[in-house]
Design a protein around this nucleic acid. Structure first.
Lengths: 205, 205
DNA sequence: AGGTTATATGAACGCACGTTCATTTCAATC
DNA sequence: GATTGAAATGAACGTGCGTTCATATAACCT
């Protein structure tokens, strides 16, 4: 008998499934802790304590710590790309750029922890995992690059260097997550509007 | 006798000084490793191996690992602020903004490792160290905010929200360090020019 | 009620961590 | 050549790491 026998909230069981609510809770706890302290600084025992189990139990749901990080990052980027594909995209480059700007800010502000991890923990991925994530990130950047190129070619945007403008706009938009607070001075919609204004002017439209 | 007796490059001695070339080498090695792998993922033994000494010897130069991180970050921000103060600042808000833009890009591209650490390792600082660093970072941001406010008040810039524009411009400029490569397509001067163009347009000037 | 099986425990594994310290080394000085 | 003292060694400290596994538990099925 041990102290955990007093656990008042035993896991629900769904018979035949090997993943009840502990799996999602593990991922949620890991996401929170990795974002706040960094992958390398968080121990499996810390995550387990947050979930309410012993460390060994986590390995019913993940292959290892690295696999956990990879899953979190891949899920985030898969979500990001899927969400963009489900978005109304605009009929012309200017509309498309506004859609992208607003979508990017909205999506990223809703998932600050996932965003933080995806940008900060790249160096903690093993090479093959890194390649997968990097490919997804690049695919998303290409969305913006294509919009900017189309706008440049049709004369709507004025850009000396499309690739550089892509990086500049992405950096500017993603930067929102570093200072935004839910109880802050500005609403998300107002932030979207102000950023869209700056982006529009920055690309010369 | 041990294997290190074969070291062909014994440290210079300056008699009475307690800091020869090992001190700077320690800081340089730590900066490189922290930037590449992250503070928490780098061990003192790794740093020592890079310097060419045993781990124990490092403690002749630093109080502990945390103190090493703090010193690196504080030195970087002190350098940044001092360098800006030594810079020609421009006679009006538009000139000042161009000076700042070019200065920021130039300074950051010259110290990619220090920049990376200063932005990524904030969460690994103990609270009192964090407060010091955060204060310096804020002081630097205020430089840009003051320029933007002055320009807005004199009608040169068109900004719905000065604070937000400050964060957007800083994020955009600092983002250069995430993709810039020394052997890349664009020269630093060309990058400065293109970014200045985008910043100028973004603030409506 | 008994058997099955998914899930959790808790101890253990070998290893690496940050840090300390008695001892050794060796260039500079006398 | 002897003395000095800053600087480095290398072993040791206690701790915590990621991961494994035999065992225990409890919800489900028959």
């Amino acid at each position: 008998m041990n102290v955990r026998s007093y656990n008042l909230c035993p896991m629900a069981r769904t018979s035949g499934s090997h993943s009840d609510i502990t799996g999602p809770r593990l991922r949620a706890a890991a996401q929170r802790l990795f974002a706040r302290q960094g992958y390398a600084a968080v121990s499996m025992r810390q995550i387990a304590a947050e979930v309410g189990v012993q460390a060994g139990a986590l390995y019913n749901y993940i292959p290892d710590k690295q696999g956990l990080l990879f899953d979190l990052m891949k899920s985030h980027l898969d979500d990001l790309i899927a969400a963009w594909q489900a978005e109304a995209k605009g009929q012309n480059p200017l509309d498309a750029l506004e859609c992208f700007t607003r979508f990017h800010i909205r999506f990223h502000l809703e998932r600050p922890d996932a965003v933080f991890i995806a940008y900060m923990e790249l160096r903690n991925l093993e090479p093959e995992n890194f390649a997968v994530i990097e490919d997804l990130r690049k695919r998303y950047e290409t969305v913006l690059e294509d919009i900017l190129r189309a706008g440049k070619e049709s004369g709507v945007f004025s850009l000396p260097d499309t690739k550089l403008a892509t990086m500049a706009v992405i950096a500017m938009l993603t930067g929102v997550t570093t200072w935004y607070r839910d109880d802050g001075r500005l609403s998300r919609d107002r932030i979207e509007r102000i950023y869209w204004n700056m982006v529009r002017k920055a690309v010369g439209a």
